[in-house]
Design a protein around this nucleic acid. Sequence first.
RNA 1: GCCCCGGUAGUGUAGUGGCCUAUCAUGGAGCCCUGUCGAGGCUCCGACGCGGAUUCAAAUUCCGCCCGGGGCGCCA
Length: 441
Amino acid sequence: MTGIDLSKRKFSSEITEAEPEGVIAGWVQDTRNLGGIAFIHVRDRTGITQVTALKKKLGDDVFAEITSIVRESAIVVMGEIKANAQVKSGFEMLPTEFEVLNKANAPLPLGVVDKVDADLDTRLNNRFLDLRKEEISRIFRVRRIITKEIRAFLDNAGFDEVNTPKIVAAGAEGGSTLFTLDYFGKPAYLAQSSQLYKQTLMASGFDRIYEIAPAFRAEESDTVRHIAEFISLDVEMSFVNSSEDIMNILDSLICHVLTKLDEVMGDEIRELNPDFKAPKGELRKVSYAEAKEMLAEAGKKLEGDLDTEAEKVLGQVMKDKFDEDLYFITDFPSELKIGTFYARRVDDNPDLTGYFDMDYRGQEIVSGGMREHRYDILIKQMKEADLDPDAFEFYLKTFMYGMPPHGGFGLGIERLVQMVLALPNIRECVLFPRDMYRLEP
RNA sequence: GCCCCGGUAGUGUAGUGGCCUAUCAUGGAGCCCUGUCGAGGCUCCGACGCGGAUUCAAAUUCCGCCCGGGGCGCCA
C-alpha cells in the first residue's frame, strides 16, 4: 500500500492551476540538483511534469532522498501546482509528499535520455526502456492511428472484419516459407497469409471482408524490410468486374488513412520524416510495360520482375517526374505471377494478369488483384505453379458451388508505417520484432 | 541461401604488432552550486566476444565458433 492515493493521479497534460493540489505518477527521467534547489523531471505517457524541490522547505534529509532517486525509477508525487513561465510546460509541482513505487537499478542497460545513441540491437534487447522514449512511442501512435482509420474507412464502406485461422494445414504459395509445428501429432503450419480463407468467405456470402492479423514467413530474408511475423491487412470483395474496382477501394482507403494521419499528427510525423505528405487524391497507375520504359529511360534495364533496384529507381523517377510517393504498378505479365496461382489472367489477353502492386517511394506495400474464380482454370494454374491440388481440397471445393468473381489485396502494415516515417528498418515499427535471429524479447 | 563488413567500460566510440597502466563522450559514485530543462565545475569508477595458432611481444595477424550490421534473391 502506498501512502498516496494513486487513483487521484493526473497526467502531465492535465496539470493546470485550476487544481492547486495534485498527484502525478511516472518515471524519474532526470534530476537537476543545484544545491539548494533541485528539479526532478517526472515523465508519464502524456509528457513531463517538473517537480521543484527546495532544500529549505523539505529539510536536508528529504531533499537528499528526493534528489538521489535513480533515473527511471517509478514514483508518485503529491504537491502544490504552481504556474511558472520558467518551466517548459508552464507549471511545476512543489512536492509535499512523494514515494518511490519501485526503484530502477543503476546503471541502466539503455539510457532513456542519454546523449549517446544506442544500436537497434541494444535497443531491442531492452525494448521496454527504448519504448519509454517519446520519439519511439510516437511510432506506435502513428501505427495505432493507421489501423484505426483503416477500420473506420472499411467499416464505413460496408466491409466486415473477420478472423481466419493462423494454424493451417497448407500454405497459399507452397511450403518453403512456412513455419512448421506439431499439431496434436499432425504436421501443421503458421499461416503465411489469409488468402485461402478470405477467398473461401467469398463463397460464403460475406461479399466484403477484411482482416488485420499476423502473417508468418519463414523466408530467410535478412533485410531492413523483412520480418518473420508481420501484420497484414487483407481485403477481399466479391461480385466485382475487374481489378479497377479493387484499386479504387485501395486508393480511397490509403488516401483516407494518410489524410487523417496528417490531420491528427502530421507535424509530429514531419519531425521524423520531413518529406511526409498525404496523397491528394487518385493515385497514378503505371503498367508494368510503362514502368519498364520509364526504367529504361533512367538507365535501368529490366528483365523479368521488378527487382529491388528497379523498384527503388522507379520510386525516384515517380518522385522526380510527378512529385508523387504512392502509385500503382498494374498489368503484370502472367509469366511473372506463376507462383501466385490464384491470380486471374486477363480474359482476352492471358499473357497479362489484372494483378497490381502499390509502391510507396520505391517500396512495395500492397499486392492484389482479381482472383481466378473458375475451378478448371484454377486447377490448371495450380499445377503450373507446381502445387498439388490434393493438398488444397477444402479450398478448391469452394470453387465448385457458385464462387462469385472476386478480388482483393494484402497490405503490409509495418511497411506502410515504415515508409510514412521513413524508418531505416522495419523492426523499428514492431514492438517486439521477430526475424531470422531474434526470438526474444 | 549467397556476398561484404564488424564485435573495445552500462551506452556510443578512438586505437591496424611494442609508444596501451587502452582515447573521448555518455553513464554511474561522490563533492560544490537556489531556476535547471543537452545545466555547469571538480574527483573517482568502469572494457579489448569465446577458443586455438603465429610471435620475444597480439585489442591489433591467422583459423574456428558465437553474436551483430549491410546488400542480394524473395516478398508485404
